[in-house]
Design a binder for these strands. Structure first.
Length: 112
DNA sequence: AAGCTGACCTCGC
DNA sequence: GGCGAGGCCAGCT
């Protein structure tokens, strides 16, 4: 079953496809990969991605909170990177998804 | 070797 | 409408 591996591969590709100044959510990525319920697995994929060149800092949870910021080595690093890309945060410290939310389905838009 | 956790989300009752 | 459990994959204890 290389399918699971394919799932990871899709996640990596997808995250790598996230345009600058935009953010996406685990659920959307998981859904774009074909399994929306695998949001958790997406987190694992990014866990290894944190060691890669993938912009995992552009991936946030459903609320726009930088859940995996601590995995970057420095919580402020993620915030700083996003701010550097032009992404804004609300007073709560969450990313304004309504302004920067990026839909991966928009790119694939065929698998379903 | 087996079980649990982990950067989550969605559906069910 | 609120609370709970389930589901996915892989790595770690």
């Amino acid at each position: 079953m290389k399918k699971k591996q394919d799932f990871f591969d899709r996640v990596y590709k997808l995250v790598a496809t996230i345009p600058k100044g935009k953010v996406t959510t685990y659920g959307l990525v998981a859904e774009a990969c074909g399994i929306k319920s695998a949001a958790r697995t997406v987190g694992w994929a990014l866990n290894g991605a944190s060691a890669s060149n993938l912009p995992c800092h552009r991936v946030v949870n459903r609320f726009g909170a930088l859940t995996g910021k601590v995995h970057f080595g420095d919580p402020m690093l993620m915030e700083n990177l996003l701010k550097s890309e032009g992404i804004t945060f609300d007073k709560e410290g969450y990313v304004e998804l309504k302004k920067h939310l990026w839909i991966p389905s928009k790119v694939l838009s065929k698998k379903k």
